[in-house]
Design a binder for these strands. Structure first.
Lengths: 216, 216
DNA sequence: CTTTTTGAACTGACTGGTCAGTGCAAGGGA
DNA sequence: TCCCTTGCACTGACCAGTCAGTTCAAAAAG
């Protein structure tokens, strides 16, 4: 009954214990992401997730309020990885003194890297992102916003700098670029996994920079 | 146990008697596609589908062997609509004497039209297409092949005619174009539904033809 | 240093509900 | 008449979420 934290100081009584918890949560995320990517949310059971994570079912509910919340936290956790890596790629390119188009290219590369590293997470986003009437819709909108905004930002700067035409439609172009990379990468992973990332990147760069049509 | 179509001839046994049955099946497809697009396959119940279609649950099982098979037939039915309309757009463009790039543009338009007309079907494909370990995986591979092949065909002709560089990677470019249209269109439907299709089409054309970068 | 206490973390059997699929008698429509 | 549809009761599997009880490392007491 006595409240927690009766023991040590105020600030870090849970440093050691929270490590354990953190580890468990990470294991659950890892188990959940692949299972849900493969089977979808509804056909993945909490028992399966617990089993693959190597913990008891009760532990899932000790760490997350519900199956739904586990999933939403997973989505939020994943998008931070993506948005951060996109932004870092763009910033690094700018620091290197590259043009805005170079920054876009760097983001394409970052996108490919991300998808190669977290294929299941990517599959999962794609499967859920345009679905309507689901419980986590609002979470997904935030998540999408977070990623698209980074791309739009670079496009906006490119237009401001005169590198891109003022006629382009920024939100739509951002979506289109995003989709281009997304679908090309998923197909790469699913149907031509032997190809190198440099190869795929080069093809997409070419497409982006309009060197496809119009022979030299 | 006995397969369906034990009845009449070998090839088209359901032609005459089918009218009534066909109507029921179409109603079931329509009901299923929106429900599954919204909720996913597993969380959509057969009772819901029957109710929305306005038929009895028993009728579902009279017309389809299982929930799974209803879904697979829906996938097959849908892809015919898409592949046909892409091919027709390309052919019509060629008949009009357009270039191969014109044909690609016509296919983008056809893709946008399709997504605008069958948004639920599109959402459903996206949600399932890159998923692994599902019962209908092989059906989906066929389905994807059917659509991508059309795009690849036009790209191949364009390269043969010298309209596109020989350096392009045809399968990957086809995927990327497909993804570009797909994601741009889904975002359009979900987040900027007020925009006209001509508007969206114009932006994507510009992106395709490399008029984005490189100011005049 | 040893013993006891504490409580966060974890466990897994259990419950209440849901749903795919079945069976069948009766009711149309062509 | 025959094919299709209806309505409805029923079964058995499956599954999200619960809860009483266990574990164990670190803090407190001796």
């Amino acid at each position: 009954m006595s409240a927690r934290a009766s023991g040590t100081g105020t600030i870090s009584p849970m440093d050691s214990s929270s490590t354990r918890r953190q580890t468990t949560r990470r294991k659950l995320f890892e188990a959940a992401v692949t299972l849900i990517a493969e089977q979808g949310f509804s056909s993945t059971t909490v028992d399966e997730i617990a089993e693959r994570a190597g913990v008891a079912k009760g532990t899932v509910y000790y760490n997350f309020a519900s199956k739904n919340e586990l999933f939403e936290e997973l989505l939020r956790h994943g998008i931070e990885l993506l948005a951060t890596s996109l932004q870092e790629a763009a910033d690094a390119s700018a620091d290197r003194g590259g043009s805005r188009v170079d920054a876009l290219d760097a983001m394409i590369r970052a996108g490919l890297d991300f998808i190669a590293r977290y294929p299941a997470l990517t599959q999962l986003y794609v499967a859920e992102l345009w679905r309507t009437n689901r419980a986590w819709q609002s979470t997904l909108m935030v998540v999408r916003e977070r990623a698209i905004t980074v791309v739009e930002g670079v496009l906006r700067e490119a237009v401001a700098d005169g590198e891109l035409s003022e006629d382009i439609d920024i939100p739509l172009t951002a979506s289109a670029l995003f989709g281009m990379v997304l679908v090309a990468a998923l197909d790469w992973q699913s149907y031509q996994p032997h190809r190198s990332i440099d190869d795929v990147h080069a093809s997409l760069s070419r497409l982006l920079q309009g060197r496809v049509s119009g022979h030299p």
